[in-house]
């Protein structure tokens, strides 16, 4: 039995490119990876939003209304439902004048118990050090 830890680091704003959404969909795919592994082996996914990437977390996104697309917000909520660890950099939120009240924190309507954690960058670097591999989006 072994576990490979992947850290998904999102640095780019949403909708300008496909990267943030692909980060989330690939991280969510950790929930079905077992079909490629031996019994007991795991691949886990932690997600961190840093830099301009914190803009992906703004709540109230109208992607369905404007583009008929699932929003990045809904993907973050799905990640919470699947108990993925989602971190958002506090310093970068501050840089944009944003606070916890401006971003997705929880997803009770999805039945999620997990919450987004707004943390100092030092905690994100600590998370990154604990990972086996980092994937930057």
């Amino acid at each position: 039995m072994a576990t490979t830890k992947l850290g998904f680091v999102v640095q780019r704003p949403g909708y300008k490119s496909e990267n943030p959404k692909l980060a989330l969909t690939h991280a969510i795919a950790s929930q079905s990876v077992e079909i490629y592994l031996q019994d007991g082996d795991l691949v886990t996914a932690d997600i961190a939003f840093i830099g301009d990437g914190v803009l992906n977390c703004i709540k109230g996104q109208k992607a369905v209304e404007n583009y008929d697309l699932n929003s990045t917000e809904s993907h973050i909520k799905m990640a919470l439902l699947l108990d993925l660890n989602v971190l958002v950099c506090k310093e970068d939120l501050d840089r944009y004048g944003l606070s916890e009240s401006d971003i997705v924190i929880d997803a009770p309507e999805f039945g999620a118990d997990m919450e987004v954690k707004v943390v100092p960058y030092s905690e994100i670097t600590q998370m990154m050090e604990e990972m086996n591999h980092l994937l930057f989006f």
Partner: peptide
């Protein structure tokens, strides 16, 4: 599907991820 990529990372010695534009 995307879980193939994660499955491949499981026993990889190195993973090089090159994001999109």
């Amino acid at each position: 599907s995307m879980d193939w990529y994660l499955g491949s990372t499981f026993d990889a010695d190195r993973v090089l991820h090159i994001g999109g534009e």
